[in-house]
Design a protein around this nucleic acid. Sequence first.
DNA 1: AGTGGATAGGTAGAACGGCTACATGTAGCA
DNA 2: TGCTACATGTAGCCGTTCTACCTATCCACT
Lengths: 108, 108
Amino acid sequence: MKADALRGHLDPMILAVVEHEPLHGYAIMEALQERSGGAVDLPTGTLYPALRRLERAGYLASEWSTVSGRKRRTYQLTSAGQKMLADGRGEWETFRTVIEGVLRPRTS
Amino acid sequence: MKADALRGHLDPMILAVVEHEPLHGYAIMEALQERSGGAVDLPTGTLYPALRRLERAGYLASEWSTVSGRKRRTYQLTSAGQKMLADGRGEWETFRTVIEGVLRPRTS
DNA sequence: AGTGGATAGGTAGAACGGCTACATGTAGCA
DNA sequence: TGCTACATGTAGCCGTTCTACCTATCCACT
């Protein structure tokens, strides 16, 4: 599945995977793959800019570390990010209801 | 709700409202509003180009008519459009499952 | 020792599609 | 006469994701 289809929903998805544990970019990519059963396979050119955007917006905070020679930038949810995530979940419910109301086949 | 969030889902929604009866652009706009409980309020600058795009792609066919002095371009679903709509409904189910799998809060 | 794949982070520039803002015109009502 | 609803459309902007590319380390296999 193209992340293009996720447009507007990618942000809360990213926030959701770092909700309980801080993760670095690559791990976020893998977590998304795993949670989606392989359907979400973000190119790095999508994920990394998105993470920076979310950090600039104040929803994520990052920290550099080096693990066995590899640089890692680990992201964690800020309190603003938690709020954003909660909002995102609510908006998803609305969105889903709206789409299904329109898409549902009418026998009449 | 911004149509921006609908990105990638707008096409099947438009096809869905003309599934059983051909409608002209303005009526499609109103039908979307009604079916979505007012949430979907497409600006004309979104709808009309989308209709032309769908026609170019072969999913809709249009016909001019004049009703009480007003020009109307009435769109109806082609057989390719019917298939596209069916596909779109299937993709929506996949999409929904994927998003919810990622967004769902984890207690662990 | 060398190669290739997985891990890890990143950028530049293009494409896409929905956006705002504008343009045009008719019908009906106050 | 002017306002609102009806009706169709275009131009150009903007944000997000895209493809394609770059760097670098670690590990397994040859």
